[in-house]
């Protein structure tokens, strides 16, 4: 067997190649987990909007259930997929705190500062959620930005142009959009 001999430039190129592939693997794993989360939320949001459209009286209960089950699912996803480094805890309490702050600020805007009706609520929450999705995308991958932009645009179209069927529109746009976005992330 002949032992390879290389100079420092070739060694640097090999290390750069390794860095590049490691980044791609991390991105791929991130998209894999994010796709599960998106599909999970997509199914729940689809159901929430469907209940809002078919049985408006139960919409409030439906959305509380969607939020609780949705966050529980994300926490479970994180617990079963701990970060790949020695110092990573199995569960990071900050994740839960992020959701508490997220919902608290949303509630403050929609129910304390403003008195949003069902249509405004149905528009605000997806836009608010997608804003964070797009901001996260600036660090974690352009797929998040693309999904966020499409759902934001379709939500605004629904708000301005779709009548009484707005919750049904949102079931497909927000719920369906997240499911399709999640499936798309798996193929990137």
């Amino acid at each position: 067997m002949v032992t390879a001999m290389i100079d420092s430039k070739q060694a640097a190129e090999a290390l750069a190649e390794i860095d590049d592939i490691v980044q791609r693997v991390r991105q791929s794993r991130l998209y894999e987990l994010a796709s599960l989360a998106a599909i999970w939320w997509g199914v729940l949001v689809f159901a929430g909007n469907l209940v809002t459209w078919a049985w408006p009286l139960y919409a409030g209960y439906a959305w509380i259930a969607v939020d609780v089950v949705g966050v529980a699912g994300l926490v479970a996803l994180r617990v079963f997929n701990p970060p790949h480094h020695a110092y990573g805890a199995a569960f990071d309490i900050r994740l839960l705190l992020v959701f508490v702050l997220f919902f608290a600020f949303g509630y403050l805007c929609t129910s304390v500062i403003g008195q949003f009706g069902p249509r405004q609520q149905g528009t605000f929450w997806p836009l608010y959620f997608m804003l964070f999705y797009m901001l996260a995308g600036l660090w974690f991958g352009t797929a998040f930005v693309a999904i966020g932009l499409v759902i934001t645009a379709l939500t605004l179209i629904g708000f301005f142009y779709i009548g009484a069927a707005f919750p049904l529109w949102m079931a497909f746009v927000n719920g369906g959009g997240l499911i399709l976005g999640g499936l798309w992330m798996r193929r990137i």
Binding site: M1, V2, T3, A4, M5, I6, A14, E17, I18, I21, V22, R24, V25, R26, R29, H84
Partner: peptide, 21 residues
């Protein structure tokens, strides 16, 4: 010494990818 088996460019990529998991 460099590992002759890993040193080949595609095998280096394969090992780098698997090692990142």
């Amino acid at each position: 010494e460099l590992d002759d088996i890993i040193h080949q460019p595609l095998r280096l990529k394969i090992m780098a990818a698997l090692n990142a998991l």
